[in-house]
Simulated assay, not measured.
Amino acid sequence: MLNTLEVATTVIVGVMVGVEFSVAFVMNPILNALPEDSRQLGHAHGGRMLGAVMPVWYIGSLALVAVWAVAGRHHPGTGLVVTAGALLLLSVVMSILLLVPINNRNRTWTPENRPADWKQQIQRWERLHHVRVAVIIAAFTLLVAALV
C-alpha cells in the first residue's frame, strides 16, 4: 500500500510540476508574443482556468506528501519526503501571499478595465512563478530520490 501511495504521489506532483513548467516556459512566452489585447486576455483566461484547478492540486499534493511522510516514517528516505513537503508548503504559502492576489486581479481584467500597470503586474507574477517552479521542481526531485 505504501508503494502505491509513493508512486501515485510522485506522479501527481510530477504532472503538477510539468504543467507549471509549461506555463512558465511555454505558455507565457507564447502569450507575451501576442498583441497587447490578446496577450492580456490570454493571461486573464489562463488565470481563471488554472486558478480554479491549481489550489486543489497544490494542497492535494501537499496532503499526499504528508500522508507519505507519516505512513513511511520508519522507512529510508523519510527525511527527503519531509523536506519535499516543506518545499510544497512553501510553494502554497508563496502562492497564497504573492501569486494569488495578482492572479485574482488579472483574471477580471479586460482591455477596457485593465490598470495602466497591468504589464508590470504580469511580469511580477511571472518572476514569482519562476521561483515557485524552482521550489516545486526541488520538491519533486526529493520525492523521486526518496522513491528510489
Rank of each mutant, 00 (worst) to 15 (best):
M1C: 00
L2V: 03
L2M: 03
E6F: 02
T10C: 11
V11I: 09
V11T: 06
V15P: 03
V17L: 15
E20H: 11
A24G: 09
F25Y: 12
P29T: 00
P35C: 14
S38V: 15
R39E: 13
R39F: 06
Q40R: 12
A44P: 10
H45I: 09
A52H: 11
V53L: 15
V56C: 07
I59W: 07
G60P: 08
S61D: 02
L62M: 11
L62F: 14
L62I: 03
L62V: 05
L64Y: 00
A66P: 00
A66H: 00
W68G: 04
A69C: 01
A69S: 02
R73P: 01
H74C: 00
T78V: 15
V81H: 03
V82C: 07
V82M: 10
A86F: 03
L89A: 10
S91A: 13
S91E: 07
M94I: 12
S95L: 02
L97E: 05
L98A: 12
I102P: 02
N103T: 02
R105H: 01
R105G: 08
R105Q: 07
N106H: 10
W109D: 12
W109M: 04
T110S: 15
W118I: 15
I122V: 15
R124H: 12
L128A: 12
L128V: 09
H129A: 04
H130Y: 14
A134I: 08
A134D: 08
A138M: 10
F140D: 12
V144Y: 02
V144A: 09
L147S: 09
L147W: 10
